[in-house]
Simulated assay, not measured.
Amino acid sequence: MTACAIETTAEDDDREGTPVRPPAGFAITANGAYAARLAGSGDALYAERWTLDGPEPYAVPLPLDQPEEADAQLLPLADGRVLVCRRVDGRRHTFSLLYPTGPGTGELRLGSVEAPGPGPVELLPPSPDGICAYARHAGPESTTLWLVAGGAFGPERVAELPGHCAGGVWLDRTGRMLALDRRLGDGPVKTVAVDLERGGEVSPLLQITETSDDRLLLADPDSGLLLIRSDAPSPGHERLGWGVLGSLLPVRFPDCLRLDDAAVTPFAVQPGQVLMPESCGVALRIDAAAGSWVGLWRPSGRRMHQVAAPPGWVAGAGAWSPEGLLRLPCSTRELPCALAGLTVPEEPEPQPEPGPVPGPEGEAVAGDAPPRACRPVPLQQAPLTDRKPAG
């Protein structure tokens, strides 16, 4: 673990190894170079940028004359600037870029958008291109997408999608294809692919059965590995599964990812494993009454390795290196800015976990059986190849 010294708050606990409890939200750029969070305590909150790609991590505070509100959203960009989204006047949201300048903080105001209905405008995960940033507002009947940073004229609306959309997973390395979990009316949740260069053109992406709720949690464009949550194996009870982008093989639901009395949520996938989805390391956050800890797993393995969280882990945050090192951001009084490293333990004879999947009539189908009427991941219907924008 490496660390650096930054200013701590008065409310930090004096006991050794006690985590500094930051406000919710810790975003990491797609290339793992920068992160951002709200730091401080009480009413004295400010943006803080972490640099993660150097010999040692370090944090730079970005305070302004006025403190940030607790519901401010932060997103780091690949050039080191931090996007902040602030909610003002109820439905209006403003956007600014923060950056260090000498002893102070520079702020570039980008403009604002107004939500067309109740509920906040939410920033989407950092774009793979590191330049653009997008926001989403989901109403009961439609969802609006904005480009809020990286455009030529400030925030601009890029798409209006029918239905209520949640989530947000990038499917390529350019920031063109976005996956959203959409519900139309009272129907089930299905993941769709949105082409941001074609005005928000929507294509089906994930449907295991016609009536199941199917959500995409993570995707790795290099290997094609998809992490999915669905109630298709047992209606009313969601389970974690995995599939492969563009494959016709069934989605698999390994028993090792299912724990009694604990919630398991994937938060990072190892990049760089081109065409080898079974070899990707997957990091999972495990939450139970006793607290939170880390799960490490590969699709080729038959077990999930459970590891105690390092002191001060910002639960649910982390990034893999292509070489298979999971880096977890940590913050304690002794080490306010640190990274802990974990690797997936090797198994003697890794074997694929087939796992049962439901057929179109609800019966169990072996993982190596041919696909039935509803292809689990009908990705050939999604526009994932390069196409010229419509003229």
Score class of each variant (00 low, 15 high):
residue 271 P to V: 03
residue 272 G to W: 11
residue 272 G to D: 08
residue 272 G to C: 13
residue 273 Q to V: 10
residue 273 Q to E: 10
residue 273 Q to D: 06
residue 277 P to V: 08
residue 278 E to F: 13
residue 278 E to L: 15
residue 279 S to W: 15
residue 280 C to D: 10
residue 281 G to W: 12
residue 282 V to N: 11
residue 282 V to G: 06
residue 282 V to C: 04
residue 284 L to I: 13
residue 284 L to M: 13
residue 285 R to S: 08
residue 285 R to K: 10
residue 286 I to T: 08
residue 287 D to M: 11
residue 287 D to V: 09
residue 287 D to H: 10
residue 288 A to G: 00
residue 289 A to M: 15
residue 289 A to L: 14
residue 289 A to V: 15
residue 290 A to F: 06
residue 290 A to I: 13
residue 290 A to K: 09
residue 291 G to K: 11
residue 292 S to T: 13
residue 292 S to V: 14
residue 292 S to L: 08
residue 293 W to E: 04
residue 294 V to F: 01
residue 295 G to E: 00
residue 296 L to G: 01
residue 296 L to H: 01
residue 297 W to I: 05
residue 299 P to R: 10
residue 300 S to T: 07
residue 301 G to Y: 15
residue 302 R to H: 06
residue 303 R to G: 14
residue 304 M to W: 04
residue 304 M to T: 03
residue 305 H to Y: 09
residue 306 Q to R: 15
residue 306 Q to A: 11
residue 306 Q to F: 04
residue 307 V to C: 13
residue 307 V to W: 01
residue 308 A to S: 09
residue 309 A to D: 00
residue 309 A to S: 07
residue 309 A to I: 01
residue 310 P to F: 00
residue 310 P to E: 06
residue 310 P to V: 02
residue 310 P to N: 06
residue 310 P to L: 02
residue 310 P to I: 02
residue 311 P to N: 02
residue 312 G to P: 00
residue 312 G to C: 03
residue 312 G to F: 01
residue 312 G to V: 02
residue 314 V to G: 00
residue 314 V to S: 00
residue 314 V to P: 00
residue 315 A to D: 09
residue 318 G to M: 00
residue 318 G to H: 00
residue 320 W to F: 10
residue 322 P to G: 08
residue 322 P to N: 08
residue 322 P to R: 09
residue 323 E to G: 10
residue 324 G to K: 09
residue 325 L to F: 07
residue 325 L to N: 04
residue 326 L to Q: 09
residue 328 L to G: 03
residue 330 C to M: 00
residue 330 C to I: 03
residue 332 T to R: 15
residue 333 R to V: 12
residue 333 R to K: 15
residue 333 R to Y: 12
residue 335 L to C: 13
residue 335 L to N: 08
residue 335 L to A: 14
residue 335 L to V: 03
residue 335 L to M: 14
residue 336 P to F: 12
residue 338 A to F: 06
residue 338 A to S: 14
residue 339 L to E: 04
residue 339 L to C: 02
residue 340 A to C: 11
residue 343 T to N: 01
residue 345 P to K: 06
residue 345 P to R: 07
residue 345 P to N: 06
residue 347 E to I: 08
residue 348 P to Q: 14
residue 348 P to R: 14
residue 349 E to V: 11
residue 351 Q to D: 13
residue 351 Q to A: 13
residue 351 Q to P: 01
residue 351 Q to F: 11
residue 352 P to S: 04
residue 352 P to Q: 05
residue 352 P to A: 01
residue 352 P to M: 02
residue 354 P to I: 07
residue 354 P to D: 03
residue 354 P to R: 01
residue 355 G to V: 01
residue 356 P to S: 09
residue 356 P to T: 00
residue 356 P to C: 09
residue 357 V to N: 10
residue 358 P to G: 09
residue 359 G to N: 10
residue 360 P to N: 14
residue 360 P to A: 12
residue 360 P to E: 14
residue 360 P to V: 14
